[in-house]
Amino acid sequence: MKKLALLLLILISGSSFAQNDAKRISQYNLENKIGIQGYDPVGYFNQGKAVKGKKEVLVSYQGVTYNFSSAENKNAFLKNPSKYEPQYGGWCAYAMGSTGEKVEINPETFKIVDGRLYLFYNAYFNNTLKSWNKDQDNLKGKADTNWKKIYKN
């Protein structure tokens, strides 16, 4: 009886992990399940700039694949993935706060706020990081609320 209960628990847990992975894949800003357009999420923190990751140095975390520029960055990510993942599923933080929309980003336009990575749209003379900086606290609060509505746990 105990073995049957344990097997059922494992099956239910596996099913809920798969559902969570599918949800992340459907709601996050991904290209072929790859986050941040292949940029190294740890590089933003350790190198202070956007660094393109290598296809051969990767980790799949809850359905999202991240590329890394080095094994050291990959290992840092594995120790604490939630520290390095971008906020709002990798969508533009300004748009999430301003309108609640999922807007593409330029992975080279970013800001670290309170130890978290925020990414921004920057094209056609429209750098949303500049607008974010003018009203960061208000926009961050609204973005947090809007993302919770989009990505309900």
Rank of each mutant, 00 (worst) to 15 (best):
N29T: 12
N29H: 13
L30W: 07
E31G: 13
N32E: 13
N32I: 13
N32F: 13
K33R: 15
G35D: 06
G35M: 08
I36Q: 01
I36F: 10
Q37L: 10
G38W: 12
Y39Q: 07
D40F: 05
P41M: 06
P41E: 09
V42T: 06
G43E: 04
G43T: 01
Y44M: 03
Y44K: 02
F45S: 04
F45G: 09
F45V: 05
N46W: 00
G48T: 08
G48P: 05
A50S: 08
V51P: 02
K52I: 11
G53M: 05
K55W: 10
E56V: 10
V57W: 08
V57M: 15
V57P: 10
V59H: 03
V59Q: 07
S60C: 11
S60I: 14
S60K: 14
Y61A: 08
Y61I: 09
Y61W: 15
Q62T: 13
Q62C: 06
V64T: 07
V64W: 04
T65K: 13
F68V: 04
S69A: 15
S70H: 03
S70M: 02
S70A: 05
E72P: 05
N73D: 06
N73C: 08
K74C: 05
K74S: 09
A76I: 09
F77Q: 05
F77V: 09
P81K: 06
S82G: 11
S82N: 15
K83A: 13
K83Y: 11
Y84M: 03
Y84G: 01
P86S: 07
P86C: 04
Q87W: 04
Q87E: 06
Q87M: 12
Q87T: 08
Y88E: 01
Y88C: 03
Y88N: 07
G89R: 04
C92Y: 00
C92Q: 01
A93N: 00
A93Q: 00
A93P: 00
Y94M: 00
M96N: 02
M96E: 02
G97Q: 00
G97C: 00
G97I: 00
S98G: 04
T99P: 01
G100R: 02
E101S: 11
E101W: 08
K102G: 01
K102F: 02
V103I: 14
E104M: 08
N106I: 03
P107L: 14
E108M: 14
T109G: 03
F110T: 00
F110N: 03
F110L: 08
F110V: 03
I112T: 10
I112C: 08
D114P: 13
D114E: 14
R116A: 12
R116K: 15
L117D: 05
L119K: 04
Y121N: 01
Y121C: 01
Y121H: 10
Y124H: 14
F125P: 12
N126A: 14
N127K: 11
T128Q: 11
T128R: 10
T128K: 10
T128V: 10
L129S: 05
W132D: 01
W132V: 04
N133M: 12
N133G: 10
N133A: 15
K134F: 10
D135S: 11
Q136H: 09
Q136T: 14
D137R: 05
N138A: 09
N138P: 09
N138Y: 01
K140D: 00
G141Q: 15
G141E: 11
K142H: 03
K142S: 01
A143R: 04
A143D: 09
A143P: 08
